[in-house]
Every structure is written in C-alpha cells, then in structure tokens.
C-alpha cells in the first residue's frame, strides 16, 4: 500500500468519544451520506465545513473511546478523511476502522507537531508520519501485514465477500 498524502485537520483533544464523533441521537441513521453530515458534531457543530476529501485527521489520546457504534468510523470516512493519526485510539473504534478500511496510524506526540493545513504523509507499513510543511518526521506503530492487507483491500467486507464467493 503506497503512502497516503493529505492536508492535516487537527483535533488536539484527548478522549474524543464516539458520542462526540457521532452523537447518539443520530445512531439510527444508516445512509452513509446522512451519517457523514454529522461528523464530529459533538466536538464542533461546524466541523463538517473544515473537511475536504483526502484530508488527514490528527488527534490526541484515546480518540474514539466509548461505544461500539460503527458510524463513528463511517462518518469520518464518508466525510472525506483519507486517514487518522492519533496518540492512541479506542479499541472498538480501531477495530471498526480496520474493518471498514479507514487507515489509522498510532503515533504518539505527532499531534503536537502539526498545524491545520500542513501537508502530511503517512507510511503505514513503516509506521511513519511525515509533516512535509514543517519537515518533521515521527515514528509510530508499524502496521502488521495482517492489518495492512485489510487496508489494502479497502476493509474486511470485500475480503469476506470474495471468500464467500470462492467457497
């Protein structure tokens, strides 16, 4: 999987929960476009306006903690984020991100080196995040081949599908 490049959207807060990423009042939504409308609304009502397709979200500690709602990943993906870099992320959210093919790099401290709009490059295999605008590089957790393979396939759904079809 090649490097992911995009402009940074910075959310330098800790414990941004799934209730902030995608508030409970909307969890009955199933249409991806509608889900994208409410991205990070619990943190900032107008967050949606900050995002352009291909941007990279850079977050703090324990991003995505809380409930298992998958919309907390779908909303970010459908709103246009190409990847998420965080100091650490909630476990179920992380699992959901892998399953749905939203690349996530855990990279302690990177959020402190980035300003909104900086050009970011992510190498998942090496676990490296690069801030091209500032010329800094940070080393995070390298992604295992198992997970890389899932990202490369765009999530686990297409994989399951081809597996079922091949049976």
């Amino acid at each position: 999987m090649s490097d992911i490049k995009g402009k940074a959207i910075v959310l330098n807060m800790n414990n941004v929960s799934t209730d902030q990423i995608f508030p409970g009042q909307y969890v009955n939504l199933t249409d991806p476009n509608e889900i994208a409308e409410h991205v990070l609304e619990g943190a900032d009502k107008s967050f949606k306006n900050r995002i352009k397709t291909g941007d990279i979200l850079v977050a703090g500690n324990n991003f995505g903690c809380g409930s298992s709602r998958e919309q907390a990943v779908i909303t970010l993906k459908e709103a246009g984020f190409a990847a998420v870099i965080a100091n650490s992320v909630g476990r179920i959210w992380y699992r959901n991100a892998i399953n749905l093919g939203l690349p996530v790099l855990i990279c302690e401290g990177f959020v402190n080196q980035v300003e909104e709009g900086d050009e970011i490059e992510v190498n998942l295999k090496e676990g490296i995040a690069k801030n091209s605008s500032k010329g800094t590089i940070a080393k995070g957790n390298a992604i295992s081949d198992f997970v890389l393979n899932i990202f490369a396939n765009g999530g686990i759904k297409p994989m399951m599908k081809s597996k079922i079809l091949s049976k």
């Binding site: 298992s68 998958e70 990943v73 959901n96 399953n99 686990i156 759904k157 399951m160 079922i164």
Partner: peptide, 30 residues
C-alpha cells in the same frame, strides 16, 4: 456483542467484548 459494555460478562468468567457491525456480520456468516 455490538455493544461496548460487553466487558460486563467478565463477571461470569466469560471473554466478552464489543465490536461493530462489520465484525458482527462476519461472525453471523462464519
């Protein structure tokens, strides 16, 4: 379970964990 509080069942000595819809669909199939 599709619920983060599935950790509750550790009280019974079970391995309980929460997942999202895609994981759950995988289990329902396989």
């Amino acid at each position: 379970a599709t619920d983060s509080h599935t950790t509750t069942h550790g009280a019974f000595g079970a391995f309980g964990t929460g997942v999202g819809a895609t994981d759950m669909a995988t289990i329902m199939i396989s």
